[in-house]
Amino acid sequence: MAVNPYEQYRRMQVETASQGKLILMLYEGAIKNLHLAQQCMESKNINGAHSSLMKAQRIIQELNITLNMDAGEIAQNLRDLYVYMLERLAKANMQKDRAIVSEVLELLAELKSGWDEIILKKSSRNAPVQVK
C-alpha cells in the first residue's frame, strides 16, 4: 500500500503541533470547508455542499467538546456560540442557504483572529532571545 506523502506530512503537522496551533488548524479547516460549501452551492453541487457543511460542523463540534469549561464565563460563551453556529449550519444545509454560511464564516473569522492574537503573544513570549 503506497503512502501519500501529503497525508503523511499533514499527519506529522498535527502530531507535533502545540495546542494553540491545533486550535488554529481547526478554525482554518472549518473556514476552508465553509468556503467550499458556498462554492458548491453556487455551482448547484448539492452533494459537495452537504459534504463540506458536514465537515465544518464536525470541526465546530470538536472545538466545542474540547473546551475547558473550568475557564469560566469565556468557555461558556464560546460553547453558546459554537452551539449557535451548529444550529445555523444545520439550517444552511437543509436550505442550501449561502447567507447563513456567510454569517457563520464571519463568526469563525472573528474568533480565529482572536486566537491568532493570543497564540502570537504566547509564542513571542516563548521565543528564544537573540543576542547580536
Rank of each mutant, 00 (worst) to 15 (best):
N4E: 14
N4W: 01
N4S: 13
P5L: 14
P5A: 10
P5W: 05
R10V: 12
R11K: 15
M12K: 11
M12S: 08
Q13G: 06
Q13F: 03
Q13N: 13
Q13K: 13
V14C: 00
T16N: 07
T16F: 05
A17D: 08
A17E: 07
S18M: 04
Q19E: 13
G20K: 10
L22P: 05
M25I: 11
I31P: 01
K32S: 12
L36C: 00
S43L: 06
K44S: 14
I46A: 11
I46P: 00
N47C: 00
N47L: 11
N47H: 08
G48H: 10
G48I: 08
A49Q: 09
S51I: 03
L53C: 07
A56D: 07
A56K: 01
Q57N: 01
Q57C: 01
R58S: 14
I59T: 13
E62N: 11
E62I: 03
I65K: 09
T66R: 11
L67P: 08
N68S: 08
M69T: 05
D70H: 09
A71Q: 13
G72I: 08
G72Q: 10
E73M: 14
A75R: 12
A75P: 06
L78W: 04
L78E: 05
D80V: 00
Y82E: 05
Y82K: 01
V83G: 01
V83L: 14
Y84P: 02
Y84H: 11
Y84D: 06
M85L: 00
E87H: 05
L89N: 02
L89P: 05
A90G: 06
A90W: 02
A90L: 13
A92I: 07
N93H: 06
N93Q: 12
Q95W: 00
Q95F: 06
K96M: 15
A99N: 10
S102F: 04
S102E: 15
V104A: 07
L105W: 08
E106Y: 06
E106S: 15
L108V: 06
L108E: 07
K112L: 03
S113F: 02
D116I: 05
E117G: 12
E117H: 07
I118C: 02
I118N: 01
I119H: 10
I119R: 03
S124Q: 15
S124W: 02
N126H: 12
A127L: 07
P128Y: 02
Q130P: 00
Q130F: 09
V131G: 03
V131W: 11
K132C: 02
K132I: 10
